[in-house]
Amino acid sequence: MAGGSVRLLPLEQSSCASLAAGIAAIEPWSVMNYPAETLAAFLLRPDGSVSRYVVSVNGEEAGVVSVRHPWLKGPYLELLALLPQAQDQGIGSIIIAWFESTALKHGARNLWVCASSFNTRGLRFYERHGFTRAATLPGLVADGYDEILLRKFPLHPA
């Protein structure tokens, strides 16, 4: 997949079960024993405040993005999950750039994300992209696990 074409396409119902199974098998979801069925149900749940996308790389499904907007004067990236074959290739950075540029076009002043407290790789990724820790949220995703809420503020046009 390296060097490929990255696209965000509307998430179709037919993709949810297989993507959820792949995501549930990787960290941080595997650490929390987060069931694929629960993740698939989340992806399928109608919600007018959420936009969900499949990450397509060279025409292959490589992950999922879910954005909640509006949320605290800006969008909340409630899910960014890349399957192993799409990791460590700069795809996450492409998605964060898209997330920020889309937010700026809509006048947002904040960007929000969460990462599990044990997910040091994810926390470093978001902090590298200008997010700072705002709060600790115990049990948000799974009982016994803390989530770290991160915020990027203020947003500035590139």
Score class of each variant (00 low, 15 high):
Trp71Cys: 09
Ala21Lys: 15
Ile96Gly: 01
Asp143Leu: 14
Ala108Tyr: 13
Arg7Cys: 10
Ser18Lys: 09
Gly4Pro: 09
Tyr145Ile: 02
Val113Cys: 13
Pro138Ala: 07
Ser18Met: 10
Glu12Ile: 02
Gly48Asn: 13
Ala40Lys: 09
Ala81Met: 07
Arg124Lys: 11
Val6Met: 14
Val141Pro: 00
Tyr34Gly: 14
Leu43Pro: 10
Gly22Ala: 07
Ile91Glu: 08
Ala158Asn: 14
Val55Leu: 02
Ser15Glu: 14
Ile91Met: 08
Ser93Gly: 15
Tyr53Glu: 06
Gly74Asn: 08
Ala115Gly: 03
Ala20Phe: 09
Val57Phe: 04
Arg133Ser: 06
Ile95Met: 02
Leu9Gly: 02
Pro46Met: 11
His106Thr: 14
Arg121Phe: 04
Ala108Met: 12
Ser14Met: 01
Gly4Glu: 08
Asn33Met: 14
Ser116Tyr: 04
Arg133Cys: 03
Phe99Pro: 01
Glu37Pro: 05
Ala21Gly: 08
Pro28Thr: 01
Glu27Lys: 07
Leu9Trp: 06
Leu111Trp: 00
Ser116Ile: 03
Arg128Phe: 11
Ala20Arg: 06
Ala134Tyr: 10
Tyr34Asn: 15
His69Ile: 07
Tyr34Glu: 13
Ile23Ser: 11
Ala142Thr: 15
Pro84Cys: 04
Glu37Lys: 10
Glu60Met: 07
Met32Cys: 13
Glu37Phe: 09
Ala81Tyr: 04
Arg45Pro: 07
Tyr76Phe: 11
Trp71Phe: 12
Gly122Asp: 01
Phe125Ser: 01
Leu77Lys: 00
Tyr126Asp: 06
Glu60Ala: 14
His106Met: 12
Ile148Met: 06
Arg52Ile: 08
Arg52His: 07
Ala86Met: 08
Ser117Ala: 12
Ser5His: 10
Thr38Cys: 11
Gly144Asp: 12
Leu72Met: 14
Phe99Arg: 06
Trp71Thr: 00
Ala97Asn: 15
Asn58Lys: 02
Ala25Asn: 10
Ser15Gly: 10
Gly122Val: 05
Ser66Cys: 11
Leu11Asn: 03
Leu155Asp: 05
Gly59His: 07
Leu11Trp: 01
Glu37Gly: 15
His69Arg: 12
Gly74Arg: 08
Gly130Ser: 07
Val67Trp: 04
Ser116His: 03
Ser5Cys: 12
Ile91Val: 13
Leu80Pro: 05
Ala41Val: 04
Thr38Asp: 14
Arg109Met: 12
Arg7Phe: 01
Val57Gln: 07
Thr102Cys: 14
Arg128Ser: 15
Asn119Cys: 00
Pro10Gly: 05
Phe153Tyr: 13
Val50Leu: 01
Ser5Thr: 09
Leu150Ile: 00
